[in-house]
Design a protein around this nucleic acid. Structure first.
Length: 335
DNA sequence: AATAGAGCCAACCGCACCTCG
DNA sequence: TCGAGGTGCGGTTGGCTCTAT
């Protein structure tokens, strides 16, 4: 692993040129790669005073950097818990699974992989995993099989020049006007999973798993939590309309949990269930000599989790609930 | 050895959310 | 309720390193 601190020759003491970002607009602030001296100043200060108050931290620490830059450097590189080095195969596997569940929610994914930062995972995804999936004929955004035209397009876009323009332009944080007009906040729209919330409810909709997970509970600022699913007051519950938690479509029931634990175990159950059912389904396939037209374990999950157990087409057709109208899913029940 | 292109990753940017007065 | 400040997130970029010619 290269140490960026040693490559500080380029762009180093360049003054901020843009005046749009308040904290970086001050003339004389340093940008570019960090030097070992700066790293030490920042590390020593945070060890002594702790994290937070990033805006004023640089001045207090004697750094000519903006707060954002300090925070980023600490979070992505200097924090003791940050693990350096190659992504291990099991970590890679976990990233793939989580991306399939969560889409480009790098911070959420990073939160499930100890020692790895969102930036690191994002970079690893863009430089390794997306290409790997494309080479396997899988669309890295949707995790669905690519059609031949898409394969060509994706292969073309994997070159440096086009890759930089491949992503949608600054769309990640844009609100969906239609959703906004309907009083529904679409918090983000990931590749494989959509998290939709209104003031009282949160929906997790994973279209590729052919499930709809519905986490109910307050989702307003008065809770005082930044996390979408972190209510922590016991009012949150999870309602899965698949039988992934052992509940049938007909007789599902609300279960109250602390949302953090719910979300955590929710992800675990998905990840583990996926691993389990993938294996299980493969065995079933072998036994029944059935052909599933893809190697994507996701497809196996869909089929076997729904209990149809034979093909992904049946799993797709088994979706009986309304996937398009969040207003019909309040409190986990169709209205 | 020189050069061009590709790969890679730390850092930056802009936006949205949260908190607080 | 509103606005300002602080923070976090995801997308993008700059530039160093590697590899092929």
């Amino acid at each position: 692993m290269r140490n960026p601190s040693t490559s500080a020759s380029s762009g180093g003491a360049q003054a901020a040129t843009t005046a749009k970002t308040p904290c970086c607009s001050k003339v004389g602030l340093k940008r570019g790669p960090w030097t070992p001296e700066e790293d030490e100043l920042l590390s020593n200060y945070i060890r002594k005073e702790g994290e937070g108050r990033w805006r004023t931290l640089p001045k207090r620490a004697g750094l000519l950097r903006c707060g954002k830059s300090c925070r980023l450097r600490w979070m992505n590189y200097l924090r003791p818990s940050v693990k350096r080095g190659q992504i291990a195969p099991d970590e890679e596997d976990l990233i793939l699974r989580l991306h399939r569940l969560l889409g480009n929610r790098w911070s959420l994914i990073a939160g499930r992989i100890p020692g790895r930062t969102d930036n690191e995972i994002k970079n690893y995804w863009n430089t390794h995993l997306s290409k790997k999936l494309i080479s396997q004929g899988i669309d890295p955004r949707t995790h669905k099989p690519l059609n031949p035209e898409s394969v060509d397009q994706n292969k073309a876009s994997s070159s440096k020049a086009t890759n930089r323009n491949a992503s949608s332009p600054k769309s990640s944080n844009n609100k969906n006007p239609a959703a906004a007009a309907a009083g529904v906040e679409e918090t983000t729209s990931g590749g494989s999973t959509q998290i939709i919330s209104n003031k009282e409810n949160v929906y997790i909709e994973n279209t590729y798993l052919d499930h709809e997970y519905h986490i109910t509970g307050n989702n307003n600022a008065s809770h005082g939590h930044s996390s979408l699913l972190n209510c922590g007051d016991g009012t949150c519950g999870i309602d899965s309309r698949s039988n992934i938690h052992g509940l049938s479509n007909e007789e599902h029931e609300d279960i109250n949990y602390c949302a953090d634990e719910v979300f955590s175990s929710f992800l675990n159950s998905l990840i583990n269930e996926e691993a389990f059912t993938s294996q299980q389904h493969q065995q079933m396939q072998e036994q029944a000599n059935l052909i599933v037209p893809t190697s994507d374990p996701l497809v196996s999950l869909s089929a076997s989790t729904f209990g149809y157990g034979t093909s992904w087409e049946s799993a797709l057709m088994s979706s009986t609930f309304n996937q398009n109208d969040p207003s019909k899913r309040i409190n986990g029940h169709l209205q």
